[in-house]
Amino acid sequence: MKTNFFKLTEPTQALVDVFNQWENNPDLIPLTRPNQDKVALERRDTLTLDELKQRLEHHHTYLIYLDDQLVGEMNYMVDPEHLYKNEAGTAWIGITIGEPAGRGKGIGYQAIQFLEEEIKKAGLTRVELGVFEFNTQARKLYEKLGYKEIGRIENFTYWADKMWFDIRMEKYLLKDV
């Protein structure tokens, strides 16, 4: 099996449909977006092609393929308002492995390493992310990749009948010599 990453520059309606499928998957919603209550958790959103094009103005987005199958996407933004530590030149990252075929195969690990290289090429040296407290698998992945916890935001997301922390993590990237 071969993993490939491609920068998204020209979104299509077919891609929008896939993103909508992932963003509305009841198994993924608790992992990918904060929800304030049960109603929010059950809310479904529909992304349009124009909205995806607008998103690309602020997100550097990459598609994740396993062999020839699109299995996920990852992205970074530079200096968004929601940083825990407001340090200029910070990349905020996100990753979604939307297809079950892409999970549990080390693709997330490869994807984050690829994304970190792209971030370094862009001249950035700090990465920050948020991971929900109950998402222990993702936390272990980030820790394995060298991310350190820098803070927690209380009552950040609702899942399994209770509110959970958002754990913020950071990593400083070494510049290539």
Rank of each mutant, 00 (worst) to 15 (best):
N75C: 15
L70A: 09
G104V: 11
D67P: 06
I97P: 05
G72H: 03
V71A: 11
L47I: 06
R43L: 13
K53G: 03
D79I: 02
R103D: 10
K121F: 10
G89I: 12
A111F: 00
E117G: 12
V71R: 09
E116P: 05
Q69Y: 10
L70W: 09
A111P: 02
T90C: 04
E73I: 13
Y65H: 15
E42M: 11
I93M: 09
L47V: 04
G106P: 01
D67A: 13
K85R: 10
L52Q: 07
G89M: 05
E118L: 15
G98P: 08
R44I: 15
Q113V: 06
I112G: 00
R43M: 07
A40L: 09
H60K: 12
I97A: 04
Y65K: 14
M74C: 13
L63T: 02
I64F: 00
G106T: 00
K105A: 03
G98Q: 08
N86K: 12
E57Y: 07
K121N: 15
H60G: 13
P100C: 04
P80D: 14
L56C: 07
F114H: 02
P100V: 14
E51I: 08
G104F: 05
A88N: 14
Y84N: 04
K53S: 15
E81D: 12
E51M: 09
E99T: 03
G89Y: 05
T46V: 07
I97L: 13
K53A: 14
P80H: 03
M77I: 10
D50G: 09
K105M: 01
G89K: 06
P100L: 02
E81N: 02
L115G: 12
Y62F: 11
L66Y: 09
D45I: 10
G72V: 07
L52E: 15
L115F: 05
Q113L: 15
I93D: 01
E81I: 05
Q110W: 14
V71W: 02
Y109V: 05
G89T: 15
L66N: 14
E51D: 13
K121S: 10
D79N: 13
H59P: 05
L70T: 02
Y84R: 00
E81L: 00
A101N: 12
G102F: 00
Y65V: 03
L115H: 04
A101T: 13
E117Y: 06
E118R: 11
L63H: 07
D68K: 00
Q113P: 01
L70R: 01
L83S: 01
L41Y: 04
Y109A: 11
L70V: 08
E57G: 09
D79V: 06
D45R: 11
E99R: 03
P100A: 12
D50H: 11
V71N: 05
I119N: 02
Y109E: 08
A111G: 03
G72S: 07
E51Q: 15
L49Y: 07
Y62C: 08
R103W: 11
A40R: 00
L52D: 10
K85T: 08
P80Y: 03
K53V: 10
L49W: 06
E42F: 14
